[in-house]
Design a protein around this nucleic acid. Sequence first.
DNA 1: TCTATCAATGCAAACGTTTGCGCAACTGTT
DNA 2: AACAGTTGCGCAAACGTTTGCATTGATAGA
Lengths: 329, 329
Amino acid sequence: MEVITLKRISEVLGLSISTVSRALKNHPDISANTKRRVNELANTLDYEPNINAISLRSKKNRVLGLIVPSVSGFFYDSFISAIEEECRQHSYMLMILQSSNDEETEANSLRICRQNRISGLFACLSTKTTSMTAFDRFKEADIPLVFFDKVPEAENYNKVCIDDEAAAKLAAELLLKKNKKSILAIFGSQTISITRTRYKAFQKIISLQNDVKTSNEYCDTSDAAKKITKQYFTKKQKPDAVFCMSDEILIGVIKSLNDLKINIPEQTAVLALSDGFLPKIYSPEITYIETSGYKLGKLAFTKMLNCLNGLNDNTEMFTRSTLVKGGSL
Amino acid sequence: MEVITLKRISEVLGLSISTVSRALKNHPDISANTKRRVNELANTLDYEPNINAISLRSKKNRVLGLIVPSVSGFFYDSFISAIEEECRQHSYMLMILQSSNDEETEANSLRICRQNRISGLFACLSTKTTSMTAFDRFKEADIPLVFFDKVPEAENYNKVCIDDEAAAKLAAELLLKKNKKSILAIFGSQTISITRTRYKAFQKIISLQNDVKTSNEYCDTSDAAKKITKQYFTKKQKPDAVFCMSDEILIGVIKSLNDLKINIPEQTAVLALSDGFLPKIYSPEITYIETSGYKLGKLAFTKMLNCLNGLNDNTEMFTRSTLVKGGSL
DNA sequence: TCTATCAATGCAAACGTTTGCGCAACTGTT
DNA sequence: AACAGTTGCGCAAACGTTTGCATTGATAGA
């Protein structure tokens, strides 16, 4: 099937390419009659401008890159979903790349982004990223760079994050309000900053109440969380609440409580920080503080849009987390 | 930061653009010495060819489109994950678009694909798609089109699918082998073809054994599955096994069984068709027939590659499902 | 020394757009 | 009738590559 170009239209109508181009862009120089003729033909021939040509000519392409550890998962998929919606809305094309939490793959992805002359980049650092120089090249080239979720520590970057502090604080306050006195709090890997932030904020609130005892544990996997839970709930003095810092931990906790036939919320309460999918598949549904990837995606995009409009402020922004009530607390 | 082009390199080295281009492509016409000089400079300046220019010139771009109802979900995210891996491997760029199961959005996505002059398209039909004409335009333009998961009924398309028949058959055989006599089988919406296929294959096997009684139910949502399960398990004569056609159904079933404190597998067995994530979060882990999005993605890509190499055969291909043992059967 | 061959390089066109500028044909003013 | 201003359009260059062909200088054969 023949591809329709401006040239083809211009030949059919006996006009010059430039006139056709301007007619389609509703340029004032072109007469109403010509505009009508051009638009009609363009419609019937189903003309679609060649984006490659436009990008080449304008040195701008409407492509945004997105580097993420993995497309699948509780959180990133909803983040991506939000970004895709916005890209479509603003006619940007989205190029998604997985880093697999591997520094080399990440570097490779950055190279692909540069090759494709993307206009902006959303990035979530891999857990193994040590150097920022590859990212800094985008900054130097004035290509907007918005980090999300796992963000660099340094200040001079655009970042959007879950407000981990507020979320953990909210969780702790809720547990106190519900009069819980012996709380098992399970956190993720101690090496990642999210864990540290959540832990500190959580503890700060809890420690205000000196008749409340918490047992703090760290773990890397769902299985580890399961073991920890089992350990605590086979003791005589069982916790009256479990706090799960993440979905992964929640999975292990619930498995263990089910195994031990501990009733939720009668025998123990459960409260989690979560994207929202997992809490709803349990019965009773788990009460959680929402740390929504979708919301974060929307926020990231507005920040990107600002950057693309020259309002690059290198600041950090947060999404507000809200309580979603289930039946576990 | 200045962008490096062939022109820039040619100026520095006092060569012509064409010589530089050929040198980088290791063209036999160019002397070894020149090649060395060019490559060295290109490396130090970090030259990256401009993909837009290449695409424009060659009328070929290495972009593949992917239209999917939603990025997030049990199945599609792993499908996408597989496709992304392969794209990276073969240096294709992946453009992902969500249809939201809406025909208009789907049509819009197809338009975006055409604008971007993609080289190939992976598509999962929206549940509301009625006409194939928008898709047929890709065929007419000789742009490879590979359907996955929800595929058109007509024969003359490339399709990759879960082998629903084999999977349902496998499930039925397994239940018989385990000597289950009273099976609650819950299927998805009756309007979609997957349901019909799975139902037929399942029944065909079960009906071979005339002392086995099955109760077949259909439902649209996880909640509906929950209600159905409750209904059956509050009767005196409880089923000794539940078959779940999908992850969504599984969620409802487990919720209900948990509520009723029915032990798995002692009081009833559970068997599901699933992508594999959900079964593993329960305790005991659910035994399932794997209907892997990841595998399907890999299969879809090989088919796409064949098409891109001119071996477009318009056939349907299937992934083999395998049994993954958990503790629920 | 002249010509044929060959190796190495350069020229220029093409891909499809956009856009500054120039030009012709009107229009209206003096 | 001469002029300026306006309207509507076309020319050509540019974006960065690739590639057929022309060109150059050198080498070898006679």
